[in-house]
Amino acid sequence: MTSHKMKKIAFKVVLYLAALLLLLYLVLPFLWMIISSISLERELISTARWLPEEPQYARFINIFREEAFFREAFINSIIVTSFSTAITLFVGILAAYAAARFNFKGKQGLLIGVLLTQMLPGATIIIPIYLFMGRLGMRDTRIGLLIVYVGFILPVVIWILKNYFITIPVEIEEAAIIDGANTAQILIKIMIPLVVPAIFATGLFSLITVWNEFFFALILTSIHSRTVPVAATQFSTMGGVDYSMMATAGVIGAIVPITIAFIFRDLIIEGLTAGWSK
């Protein structure tokens, strides 16, 4: 065998070993959560075996039936996540289009401001918002949390969508203007259809971000409007941890964004890399 061939085989061996290591690294931690979620509590604390004797799939239904606060949290999460994404996209499309196609005073400052919002620690805005909402009776309401989320993701959404809008040739709109179309018509009939994949990707990004958000939800909500991440921590901080229930709640909290990410992986990867790299 030539040394060149040997080298090639050695490279393949290293490659597949590395790939195997990566596979274990990516999968094992969450796999343990899934195993825990379908194991009996006593199986988990006996540590005699790794896999459950009889998988307890029913726990994924029982958690909603028996733990009313988790069921409510799930509903809150769905409502807050979907509405804040829809509102943010609507407002974001308008602003992003203005930023992409119009010149106006303070435009540069505005765009820098948008980026600055990303550096801001959540505490800087949430302390006053917590106090304001206390005065207005909006603490622990879905609408209060929703408003904060819209504001929180709007800057990023504007930034990403603006980057997509500027890739579209201006000539298309100029032709439409000559034909007498106004801005609303141009947006609805020409621009939005051209960037539908981008809007969709941005929407998915927003869904995942809001669904996963914990800090604002922890501070602004309690029994009436808490979301899944907040409810999930309650299984581990309650007196006498129920490890299997805690794992079930964690898996449910994670399964929604994971599913979205796996199904729309190409869109999300493109959105992530294109949005952040510009």
Partner: peptide, 25 residues
Amino acid sequence: LRVLLLLPWAIPWVVNGIMWRWIYN
């Protein structure tokens, strides 16, 4: 593997904390 790479990214931060607390138990 490229698909699975999204798994850690998609998991909520707080669930990540709960998960590792349980792994380190």
